[in-house]
Design a protein around this nucleic acid. Structure first.
Lengths: 207, 207
DNA sequence: GTCTATAAGCGGATAGAC
DNA sequence: GTCTATCCGCTTATAGAC
């Protein structure tokens, strides 16, 4: 569902003035609220209140709650994709980008909470973002696996390490640390822990 | 909140006949529903329907929804504690118990979903189980850290590995793999992945 | 673009009958 | 023990005024 284009307002000549700003305001507020409460527990009204319009006013920009979620996820996806496409020059720079992403996440708790809450929620087959997360994880795991395969080809993977396993472990470690980070009041240094893990699996120096 | 005793029915002479059975039925149903939908999205009605009574009938046994959640979490805690207290004879047997727990989890998706959904949900400070999960994680991380410290004292921890980091990584890996396991339609062998991870951090043979 | 009004439904909790 | 009846609040979504 989050793949559909869900925008509503369209200027007569294709240009939209205040609408684009409003939409961005809404997306920011939605991110915050979805992150704090999850999708199902969040209410459109709460999001609308946050920017000073009514629930029905918001409906003009995003006709349904699902459409709003889809837009939020699409925005996040684009942001993250930009980071990784920029440094696609090899396995080492990819892993550096991962650490960079983690660093950035540590500065934006809202995004981490969003991912944490939604990915767990979307585990249910009937969740509106279920397919989205299935595909997202399959994609990430596939690309990460390839990174470790390239590393192995370069002889930079430690003896006995399996690329597929390494990929799953890296992704799992990041997800799991986020829960600890959130529950501990941000007392965990996720970047340092992941860096240490990568050092135990590869011969790279990712300082 | 989940620490409070929340039982309601009490026989005149301290004995409860059908009540105990009913309560167990309710707890089983609640586990299933909380696991599938999370706490906030789950409805007491749905749980009651599942065993053929009304929401108001259920209320007799557990006066509030919170009380029901508390009872579900308490039951899970007791189950798990029993497993670990049985083999408290040292760090190696503790890690074996961890793998055993994982194996058992792989056979009961409901429990995994419950943990996954609730721990993410309880990340919010206003969640009824927030403190419960904070304390639970602090406890588990502390005990796991001690296991790795004992291992280091025995010279069975690999060079440069830090006990605290190892503890966080092990717990995170398990949590993160559970998400992948659920999203992938149970295609991931969590036990094998965790075993491989432990092999890369310790010199133990945990086959 | 945003509002008011309102439909139609589900949420948990309580009172009291049986 | 379990039910019926009922309250009240909150939810999403639609229709139509401005």
């Amino acid at each position: 569902m989050p793949t559909t284009d869900t925008s509503r307002p369209r200027g007569a000549r294709g240009e939209y003035a205040k609408s684009a700003l409003r939409r961005q305001e809404i997306l920011d507020a939605a991110l915050t609220v979805f992150a704090a409460s999850g999708y199902r527990n969040a209410s459109v009204r709460e999001i609308a209140d946050r920017i000073g319009i009514t629930q029905q006013g918001l409906t003009y920009h995003f006709p349904t709650k699902d459409a709003l979620l889809a837009a939020v996820l699409r925005a996040r996806g684009e942001r993250d994709r930009a980071l990784f496409e920029a440094d696609a020059q090899g396995p080492e720079s990819h892993l550096r980008a991962v650490l960079e992403l983690l660093e950035r996440n540590q500065a934006t708790p809202g995004l981490v909470e969003l991912h944490c809450t939604l990915s767990a929620e979307a585990t249910s087959a009937d969740h509106p973002a279920h397919e989205y997360f299935q595909e997202r994880y399959a994609g990430i795991l596939g690309r990460t696996r390839q990174v470790f395969e390239e590393l192995r080809a370069q002889g930079r993977l430690r003896e006995g390490a399996d690329p597929g396993r390494c990929a799953r472990a890296l992704v799992a470690l990041m997800d799991g640390l986020q829960v600890q980070w959130l529950l501990s009041g941000k007392q965990v240094d996720m970047v340092a822990d992941v860096r240490a893990h990568l050092a135990s699996v590869t011969t790279l120096d990712l300082s």
